[in-house]
Amino acid sequence: MKTLSQLLSMKEQKEKISMITAYDYPSAKQAEAASIDTILVGDSLGMTVLGYDSTVEVTLEDMIHHGKAVRRGAPNTFVVVDMPFGTVGVSESQDLSLAKQLYQQSHANAIKVEGAHIAPFISRCSNIGIPVVAHLGLTPQSVGIMGYKMQAATLEAAEKLIQDCKNMEQAGAVMIVLEAVPSDLAQKISATLSIPVIGIGAGNGTDGQVLVYHDVLNYGVERQAKFVKQYGDFSNGIAALSQYHEEVKQGTFPSAEHTYKKKIWDEVTPD
Score class of each variant (00 low, 15 high):
Lys2Pro: 03
Lys2Ile: 12
Leu7Ile: 11
Lys14Val: 09
Ser18Cys: 07
Tyr23Val: 04
Tyr25Gly: 04
Ala34Ile: 11
Asp37His: 03
Leu45Thr: 06
Gly46Lys: 02
Val49Pro: 01
Ser54Gln: 08
Thr55Ala: 08
Asp62Phe: 12
His66Phe: 04
His66Cys: 01
Ala69Pro: 09
Val79Gly: 00
Val88Pro: 05
Val90Tyr: 14
Ser93Cys: 10
Asp95Lys: 01
Leu96Ala: 03
Ser97Thr: 15
Gln101Val: 06
Leu102Tyr: 04
Pro120Phe: 00
Pro120Gln: 05
Pro120Asn: 09
Arg124His: 14
Ser126Thr: 10
Asn127Pro: 02
Gly129Lys: 09
Ile130Phe: 04
Val132Pro: 00
Leu136Pro: 00
Ile145Arg: 13
Ile145Met: 12
Gln151Gly: 02
Gln151Glu: 05
Ala152Gly: 06
Ala152Asn: 04
Ala157Arg: 08
Lys160His: 14
Ile162Cys: 10
Gln163Thr: 14
Met168Thr: 08
Gly172Asn: 06
Ala173Asn: 05
Val174Gly: 01
Val174Thr: 04
Val174Glu: 05
Met175Asn: 05
Leu178His: 01
Ala180Pro: 14
Leu185Ile: 08
Gln187Cys: 14
Lys188Phe: 04
Ala191Val: 11
Leu193Gly: 04
Ser194Pro: 08
Ser194Lys: 12
Val197His: 01
Val197Arg: 00
Gly199Tyr: 00
Ile200Arg: 00
Gly203Met: 10
Leu211Glu: 01
Tyr213Asn: 02
His214Cys: 01
Leu217Ala: 06
Tyr219Glu: 12
Arg223Gln: 13
Gln224Met: 15
Lys226Trp: 08
Gly232Asp: 15
Asn236Ile: 13
Gly237Ile: 12
Ala239Cys: 06
Ala240Asp: 15
Ala240Met: 15
Leu241Trp: 12
Glu246Tyr: 10
Glu246Met: 13
Lys249Ser: 12
Pro254Tyr: 07
Lys261Arg: 15
Glu267Tyr: 07
Thr269Trp: 11
